[in-house]
Simulated scan of single mutants.
Amino acid sequence: MVHAIGVTEPGGPDALVELDLEPEPLGPGQVRIRVTSAAVNPTDTLVRSRPRQGEADGVRVPGMDVAGTISEIGPDVDRPFQIGDAVMAIVVPSGEHGGYRSDLVVPARSVAKIPAGLPDAEAATVPMNGLTAQLALDTLALPAGATVAVTGAAGTLGGYFVQLAKLAGLVVVADAAPQDEEFVRSCGADVVLPRGDGFVAEVRRLYPHGVDGLLDAAVLDAAALPAVKDGGTLVTVRGWQGDGTDRVRVAPIFVRGYAEEAEKLDRLAELAGDGRLTLRVAGQPPAAEAADAHRSLEKHGVRGRFVLRFA
């Protein structure tokens, strides 16, 4: 049996319980991972609390980021993996299939080797948020020298986005609370403005016509629109599709569409390994303490990710 953390009835953090599940079958193009670390993300709280969608949704395992070692390789895998390789992976959760389990089968193209010397707990914070940041950049499709803003810059997604945007040659305008300014500047932000209600007004003061694009990692939705110039792009991460006007292109992104972008995941692993991505782990509780990690996450203000440890 496989040790997992999940819910049988949706609810708050206390709905998370330890489960014994059957191993998942291994198919073509897939690998099996012995999971040692699983990052806790805000999306996991939605999986935990979402109302049941029928009897088939009776057991639900959250988790979109894992790290561990490859224990089995299926046929027709076109990635250079061997048994025992240390890897990180993005997971698209569905029912019993999620990152909070000690044995997990995923497409090989959702997996990347962990660079030598990088701890698995840190590596587990990269795949989902890193790919989301890259997807946002690709969706904005801005040329080098363009100006991009980001809300929620001190968060995991926001921090990765700032660093990837600088690598792409963009001018980055970011928000930050006073205690986060040093971190956001260390990520390479060119302009750091106070987060909160005045952020958009400050952007327009500095850039009277607005910035070329914006990633709304803080989920401001309509409140972020005035920061973007006419014809610019606002990327959203929770499905918001705009206010019905067409002055700004609003582009919702969903990382599950990038879950098998193997080459992009390989590059993120390389950047993490050589220190060009800043990895932050808020704590490493045992998997059995997942409820406590969810409670801490929902208090907001947590920097970095809690990473559940599986024996």
Rank of each mutant, 00 (worst) to 15 (best):
V2T: 08
A4E: 11
A4W: 09
E9M: 10
P13E: 04
D14M: 02
D14N: 09
L16M: 04
L19E: 03
L21D: 12
E24R: 11
G27V: 00
G29W: 00
Q30N: 01
Q30W: 00
V31K: 00
R32I: 01
A39E: 01
V40Q: 00
N41E: 02
P42Y: 01
L46M: 06
L46D: 05
R48P: 01
S49N: 02
R52S: 11
A56G: 00
D57M: 00
G58A: 12
R60A: 07
V61C: 04
P62S: 07
D65G: 09
G68C: 07
I70A: 12
I70S: 12
I70N: 07
E72Y: 08
V77M: 07
G84F: 03
A89V: 05
V92E: 09
V92D: 14
V92Y: 03
S94K: 06
E96R: 08
G98F: 06
G98R: 03
S102E: 11
S110I: 04
P115Y: 00
P119R: 09
P119G: 03
E122S: 13
V126Q: 11
P127H: 14
P127A: 10
G130A: 09
L137Y: 09
L140R: 14
G145M: 02
T147M: 08
V148F: 04
V148D: 11
T151R: 01
A154I: 07
G155L: 14
L157W: 03
G159I: 02
Y160L: 07
L164W: 06
L164P: 09
A165C: 02
K166L: 03
V171D: 15
V173C: 04
V173K: 03
V173T: 07
A174I: 13
Q179P: 01
D180Y: 01
D180Q: 09
F183Y: 06
F183Q: 12
R185N: 02
C187E: 06
C187L: 10
G188N: 03
A189T: 00
D190Q: 01
V192N: 05
R195K: 01
R195A: 14
G196A: 02
G198W: 02
V203Q: 04
R205K: 15
P208R: 09
G213W: 02
G213M: 01
L214G: 08
L215V: 06
L215G: 12
D216T: 11
A217S: 04
V219M: 05
A223Y: 07
A224F: 10
P226G: 10
V228D: 04
V228I: 07
D230C: 10
G232H: 08
G232T: 14
G242T: 09
D243H: 14
D246P: 08
V248A: 15
G257Q: 15
Y258D: 11
E260T: 15
E261S: 06
A262N: 05
E263T: 15
E270S: 12
E270N: 06
E270L: 13
R276N: 14
T278R: 06
T278W: 06
Q284S: 13
P285S: 13
P285L: 08
P286Q: 03
A288N: 09
A288C: 09
S296W: 14
S296A: 13
S296M: 13
H300N: 10
G304R: 13
R309H: 08
